[in-house]
Design a protein around this nucleic acid. Sequence first.
DNA 1: GTAATCTATTCCAGTTTGGAATATTTTTAA
DNA 2: TTAAAAATATTCCAAACTGGAATAGATTAC
Lengths: 175, 175
Amino acid sequence: MSFKSSPEYALLGILMTGPKHGYEIYGYFSSKMKQFWHLSMSQAYALLKRMEKNGILISKEEWQVNRPSKKIFSITQAGKERFLDWVHSPVKHVRDLRIEFMAKLFFIKELKLKGALDIIDKQIEVLQEKLHLIKSSKEKIIDEFQTALHSFKIAQMTSAIEWLKECKNYFSCKY
Amino acid sequence: MSFKSSPEYALLGILMTGPKHGYEIYGYFSSKMKQFWHLSMSQAYALLKRMEKNGILISKEEWQVNRPSKKIFSITQAGKERFLDWVHSPVKHVRDLRIEFMAKLFFIKELKLKGALDIIDKQIEVLQEKLHLIKSSKEKIIDEFQTALHSFKIAQMTSAIEWLKECKNYFSCKY
DNA sequence: GTAATCTATTCCAGTTTGGAATATTTTTAA
DNA sequence: TTAAAAATATTCCAAACTGGAATAGATTAC
């Protein structure tokens, strides 16, 4: 029951701030995370349904007079553990920095968690290892295209590592 | 009948080298483009089917004695025009450099087309404009997270532009 | 008072994904 | 030499995701 796609973690993180119904979760997402992550309403509801089936959250129907009832979702203990595991693990690829790693930083700040510097360091290590691998695989470069591809990877990786180092300053005082 | 997703262009580009059947197209893809683009076999076949319906390619059944017949796909005039339009247009976002822009460079080299320097220049312009926009939107940065996000975008954008400039050297002699 | 917007959720068609299923032919190794 | 493995060639399927429309009552605005 492991999930590969990460929008689930965004929803879990939002529920870490307290129980909410679907629309409220989506509202939180739209107002605070839309800048760096996109999620449609229909997908949010579909994910919530599946996550409940997987036991990482539960819902309660809330009956209201003269109104349709709404479903309040809360995160379970299993869900909390899952979320905290995720938030403290580095991502595997540079391409995941923009959305997934950014979300981890976002929640660390939003939920006032400890360990910002720690996860940034772990992430730097992961990327530095990849950078070495890429730099050492220079043999198979035979044409202009391969050269361009190779230098693109190095450039992206290097600038990501520099950014991570800079990030440590932004998060150093409080976390 | 415009398509948003770009794997179609990869298939079109492959057919620019001559008619091929599905398996052969996929083989070409796997051996030459897998490094920077992933496509599953089933999706390749599904796309080919849809592209034929859209008139950018056509197929001929090839009957063989004692064997199941195979379908040979060829690109149409409309398809060629579509492909060439695509290959000479810059992408809109930095995130599309890794796969889509790379594919354009790949095909320019592979099909020995003109205009490599031209499209690189256009791409630099697009990104430089975005970079200015990002740099000028500094007002709404209120916390460490926003600062981190902002500096990430600038770092990625800047390193991409540097890479593009470097690319011009790799492609300057022949194209 | 009625139009627009907000709250709240569901449904649907079209696409995509990854994998398995099918079936024939060619190559490899015991 | 014969069985197994790999290559050729294509289809099918379930699960997931996408974007949008449908529904429907409540509140706000003009």
